[in-house]
Amino acid sequence: MPSNEMVYIVDDDASVADALSSLLRVNGKQVKMFTSGQEFLDYPRRDSCACLILDLRMPGLNGLQVQESIAAQTTIPVIFITGRGDVPSTVTAMKGGAVDFLTKPIDESALLASIDRALEQNRKLQLAAFEKERLLARYRSLTPREQQVLPLLASGLLNKQAAWELGITEYTVQIHRGHIMRKMEADSFATLVKLSSKLNLESSEAS
């Protein structure tokens, strides 16, 4: 596990939190504990990848309220734990994107498996966000005219058709196309089309 990956535990029962923390540390996880949902929400996270073990019923904010607050701020996979589960809460938690819903006493193997799934999910989300930001940075490096040309070409228009749409010469479109390929780091036109689709560009941007 990278040094900045973290498993957060939010449970007002200190004995449960301590037991879970000991289990996870023995299995090579870094852990930070909180006794309330608000305490976790106020904590300035510095991790690159994380998951949250969240008690369902707590004084103050309950687990579902914490989950809702988290969803509005960031993406972190949540594993719910509870002393007594109920169907409505389970359904609400799962609809909110919870990875799992475990009842106490916690099955250690099930918990560890859930944590591994949650961390892998968060790694993928973080990687996707990083790649999307890199792609946007490349797109922003294009000139305004190149940003007009790109969706036209990606939509399947020939150079001369794109030139007619923009009122410029076909040769000028060819020049823009070369600059776009280089700046977008596309090794082929097919790659450029794929990158454009990830940006959700519409040819109407050129109008």
Rank of each mutant, 00 (worst) to 15 (best):
Leu166Pro: 02
Ile70Gln: 02
Ala98Met: 03
Phe34Trp: 01
Arg145Pro: 10
Pro2His: 14
Pro151Arg: 05
Phe40Thr: 00
Gln174Gly: 14
Arg25Cys: 02
Arg123Ser: 06
Asp42Arg: 07
Glu165Lys: 15
Ser48His: 15
Glu5His: 03
Pro88Asn: 04
Thr74Gly: 08
Leu166Lys: 01
Ser196Lys: 08
Val26Ile: 13
Val26Ser: 08
Asn4Phe: 04
Leu52Val: 00
Pro88Arg: 06
Arg117Glu: 12
Ile175Lys: 05
Leu199Ala: 09
Ile76Cys: 07
Gly167Ala: 04
Met6Trp: 07
Arg84Met: 13
Arg45Ser: 14
Thr35Met: 10
Leu127His: 11
Glu131Ala: 11
Ser114Val: 08
Thr75Ile: 14
Arg25Leu: 00
Arg123Ala: 02
Met33Phe: 08
Val78Glu: 09
Thr169Cys: 07
Glu108Gly: 05
Pro151His: 09
Ser15Val: 01
Leu150Gln: 13
Phe80Asn: 07
Glu131Met: 08
Ser207Arg: 15
Gln147Ile: 13
Lys124Asn: 11
Ala154Leu: 07
Pro144Gln: 13
Leu41Gln: 01
Arg123Leu: 03
Val193His: 11
Ser69Trp: 05
Ile53Val: 09
Leu152Tyr: 14
Gln65Trp: 03
Leu24Ile: 01
Leu61Tyr: 09
Leu23Ala: 03
Phe101His: 04
Phe130Ser: 15
Leu125Glu: 15
Ile106Met: 01
Val91Pro: 03
Leu64Glu: 01
Ile70Phe: 01
Val87Pro: 03
